[in-house]
C-alpha cells in the first residue's frame, strides 16, 4: 500500500502542490489522479468522474508531464506532437494548427525537424510540456517539471505555468524544489509515509509551523545558555542552531547584545524549513 487514508480536494483553476520525501506516496497519488494506478479502496473523483470507471474520459481532459521525459525517440519534435495528438482523436488540420501554436509557446520552432534525442534537457522538458498541452487540457499534471534544468529553463517553465493558470487550467504538481512550490502553488499538501501531514497555502503553512522568521546561529554553549534563559523554541542541526522567535528583531538584538554572539543571521522562514521540520532530516532511499 503506497498511500493510506488520504483525503484532498483540488479546486478548479488553482495550482496545487504535492510535497514529500522520496517514497512519500506523491507519485502514486498523481498516478491515481491520472487513472494509471487503480484506487483499491475509497473514492477518487476527477471532474466529478470516478477514476476507476471513467479513465478514458478523464484522460481526454488531462495533460501529463511525467517525471521522466518519455518522448518518442523514433520521431522528430514535430512528429512527436502530431502522433500524440492522434491519440486524442484530434483531427489532423486542427492538430497542425495547434502544434504551430505550441512550438511558438515553448520556443521550439527552429527544432521542429530535429529528432528528440539530440535536444538538450531543457528543450526536452519544454517539448514534454507542449505535448501535454496538445489536447488543450483542463487539468495539467506535472511530476517534478523542472528537475535537472538550468535556472533559465526553470524560469521559462514557471512563466509558462503561470500563463496557463491565467487561462484557467488547473495545475497539479510535485516538486522537490520547495522554492518552486512556494512561488507557484496556491495550496499544497506535505506527505510522508503515504499520509498527508499538512494542507494549506504556502504562507499559511509556514506561518503555522515555523512563524515568519528564522534566526541561524553557530552552536556553542554560551548561546545555549542564553536561549534557555529566554525560553524560545530552537532546534540544533549539527553545528548550527535554528531559532524560531516570536519577534526576530527583538531576539536578534538580544542575542547580539546580551550574549555577545557574532555569527547570527535572521531570514524569512521558507517552505523548506516546514518540510524538514515535518518530515525530519533522516535520509530517504
Amino acid at each position: 500500500m503506497a498511500v493510506d487514508n488520504i483525503s484532498f480536494n483540488i479546486d478548479e483553476g488553482e495550482m496545487f502542490g504535492f510535497l514529500g520525501p522520496n517514497g512519500a506516496g506523491k507519485t502514486t497519488t498523481m498516478r491515481m489522479i491520472q487513472c494509471i494506478s487503480p484506487v483499491t479502496e475509497g473514492k477518487l473523483e476527477v471532474m466529478g468522474m470516478d477514476v476507476n470507471t471513467h479513465q478514458r474520459e478523464i484522460k481526454s481532459f488531462m495533460g501529463v508531464v511525467p517525471q521522466e521525459n518519455n518522448l518518442d525517440m523514433d520521431f522528430t519534435v514535430y512528429e512527436n506532437l502530431l502522433v500524440y495528438s492522434r491519440y486524442f482523436d484530434i483531427p489532423k488540420e486542427k492538430a497542425e494548427k495547434r502544434i504551430e501554436e505550441l512550438l511558438d509557446f515553448v520556443h521550439l520552432q527552429e527544432k521542429r525537424n530535429v529528432m528528440t534525442e539530440s535536444l538538450s534537457g531543457g528543450m526536452k522538458r519544454r517539448l514534454v510540456l507542449a505535448r501535454a498541452l496538445v489536447n488543450r487540457p483542463e487539468i495539467l499534471i506535472l511530476d517534478e517539471p523542472t528537475v535537472g534544468l538550468d535556472p533559465q529553463a526553470r524560469h521559462l517553465i514557471w512563466d509558462k505555468l503561470r500563463g496557463l493558470k491565467k487561462q484557467g487550467v488547473t495545475i497539479v504538481l510535485t516538486s522537490h524544489y520547495l522554492d518552486e512550490v512556494e512561488k507557484l502553488c496556491d495550496r499544497l499538501v506535505v506527505m510522508d509515509n503515504g499520509k498527508i501531514l499538512v494542507e494549506g497555502s504556502p504562507t499559511g503553512v509556514i506561518e503555522e509551523y515555523i512563524g515568519s522568521d528564522i534566526i541561524e546561529a553557530e552552536h556553542n554553549s554560551e548561546l545555549m545558555a542564553c536561549l534557555e534563559k529566554k525560553e524560545v523554541n530552537y532546534e540544533v542541526i549539527g553545528d548550527l542552531v535554528h531559532i524560531y522567535p516570536d519577534n526576530s528583531m527583538e531576539l536578534s538584538e538580544y542575542l547580539l547584545m546580551e550574549c555577545s554572539l557574532s555569527k547570527i543571521s535572521a531570514r524569512p522562514a521558507t517552505l523548506e524549513d516546514v518540510f524538514l521540520k515535518l518530515t525530519g532530516r533522516r535520509l530517504r532511499e
Binding site: 494509471i36 518518442d72 500524440y84 491519440y87
Partner: peptide, 13 residues
C-alpha cells in the same frame, strides 16, 4: 523508450 507510458496518459489504455 517508455513509449507505452506516454501513450497511456492519453485516452488509450
Amino acid at each position: 523508450q517508455k513509449t507505452f507510458d506516454a501513450i497511456v496518459a492519453t485516452p488509450l489504455t
